[in-house]
Design a binder for these strands. Structure first.
Lengths: 303, 303
DNA sequence: CATACCTCCAAGTCCCACTTATACTGGTGC
DNA sequence: GCACCAGTATAAGTGGGACTTGGAGGTATG
């Protein structure tokens, strides 16, 4: 087995024409070069160099080996270069999967910051909700899955989050839920309400997991919500409330980039939070570009 | 510094998708593979593999490295292949330089035998006499120099052969000198003659070194030869003798492939020999093709 | 629930690569 | 002709690293 180290030495010897000169170039002692060449000739099975006293000349086998060495070492250098670029954030692609409608403000901000910080990296964005996004993560279809969870649900049914325990869970943002009532609603002016105050209202719920959570919270408050509509689409929820068809509890972030028409937000008591987290695999968390993107998500949340 | 050994393991891991399977393929234990991959990731500065429990997947950096590894390992294999071909006499070129007119029978026989024994090797032939051929040998313009020497000259003037003492001198053939006299000469019928018998004849001499030797031998016999002609070309010597212009002392080998016209050979007493030797550099003697060619020269001389 | 398979970790052993020191050789100066 | 210099080969010693063995932990599969 020919070793790349030997080829490097051989090339330098061929270039300089001397063991000592090659040793100086390579930063080692002359006997080291001598021994490596001996070992290489041993494994080659034929002399590679002719020592004629004054000068060092290549045999035919030596010439052949040097000829190949150039290409091999160039390939090695290119490989190191490319890997170093990925390791040094001068290259690399991150595939991010976010929950639908969670990418309205947080993700764009993080993407912009990532591009500014590491212009040569590329981040692709796709939408999926757990458990689909987790599946994608495990299948290698993405590096980061952005998801959310409700602490209350996690406490009540830990098995629902069981498949996260071998993942890296990076908390990004905790997002308080606010109430949304039609303009002119009796609570619209109050600016604040307890869940119990909305016990008799028709409710507009969000995604299935949000709906489950809503039921859980309301039951803690002593009532079971009457849910008339449920949709994954937050603008649709706002529209429904605006049309006076019911009330809703929405994460604050979903209202950050829109101004609800015909509806008013009210502070909900007690405080209930949605926790937005970025998920990845332990090994992937150590990939520079992935780590950088996680950092950018966290920074974006801080603003 | 990425090592080829690591790339080989990485490629196998990528191919089989498992450390254990790769270890089996490579003939080592699984921890060995595990450690090598760890070391490679260390030097790469980023994870190359994602362990998801059931399967092993490549990261982007891992994919890049495998992509390069294919070419690098192919280059290494090609290099080993070519060197092994040279070492195994399935390739290789030998440049042989022979003294002029010494290549009439010995060299052709050896070349034919070499081609028969190792058809894939190539031997080129050039003509030059020492010290020119020695210079070519030292300059790297040939691998084998075929030359001859006269033991008497070597004993009388050792400094003439001083520049051979760091060379490999392989005796190939000792070639007795025979006398050549015109047909009808008084000694032609005798079949044998002493040098002294030819003291009064006009002489035809060969190359400068042969001429020097002839003078030396004749002086040992008690006379100084009258040299009328001198030529490097043995057929010319034979022609001159055949034309009755003088007598000559020729190595037996020069008459092996020609039948002198108008001249007769006579045994010369005392016996005087020319020693044909093959010269090469110590390192070159260990090159398989060179060694094989030396052997073929020796075998050719035995016939 | 037991089994089989795979990976990681820790410890021990052995080998190999490099260094230092020294002898030897050839070319070069006075 | 002799000493000097540069370069190479060799020997001995040392340190690191690569592999093995042995064991623990975890995950699919029967």
């Amino acid at each position: 087995m020919i070793e790349a180290r030997h080829l490097r030495v051989l090339r330098e010897v061929a270039r300089t024409g001397s063991f000592s000169a090659a040793a100086r170039e390579l930063g080692c002692t002359q006997p080291a070069v001598s021994q490596q060449m001996k070992a290489l000739e041993q494994s080659a099975g034929t002399p590679l160099l002719v020592r004629t006293g004054r000068e060092m000349r290549l045999t035919q086998a030596g010439e052949a080996l040097v000829r190949h060495a150039v290409g091999i070492l160039a390939g090695l250098t290119a490989a190191e270069e490319e890997v170093a670029a990925i390791a040094g954030l001068r290259a690399g692609r991150v595939r991010l999967v976010s929950f639908p409608s969670g990418s309205s403000t947080l993700v764009p901000t993080a993407l912009a910051a990532m591009r500014a910080a590491h212009p040569r990296t590329r981040v692709s964005l796709d939408e999926a909700e757990p458990p689909r996004s987790i599946e994608m993560l495990r299948n290698g279809d993405c590096e980061i899955a952005l998801a959310f969870r409700y602490p209350e649900v996690r406490a009540a049914a830990p098995e629902a989050c069981a498949d996260w325990d071998d993942l890296v869970v990076r908390p990004v943002l905790t997002d308080r839920l606010v109430g949304l009532v039609p303009e002119g609603h009796r609570l619209a002016a109050a600016g604040s309400a307890a869940f119990g105050d909305l016990a008799d209202e028709p409710w507009i719920a969000g995604c299935p997991r949000c709906r489950t959570h809503l039921v859980e919270v309301c039951e803690s408050a002593g009532f079971t919500p009457r849910i008339d509509f449920a949709t994954d689409d937050y603008p649709a929820v706002i529209g429904l409330v605006g049309a006076g068809l019911g009330v809703a509890a929405l994460p604050e972030l979903t209202l950050a980039s829109v101004r609800p028409k015909g509806a008013r937000t009210v502070r909900l008591e007690p405080a209930v939070h949605r926790e937005i987290v970025a998920l990845t695999l332990p090994d992937l968390a150590r990939v520079p570009a992935v780590g950088a993107m996680l950092d950018q998500l966290e920074s974006a949340a801080a603003r």
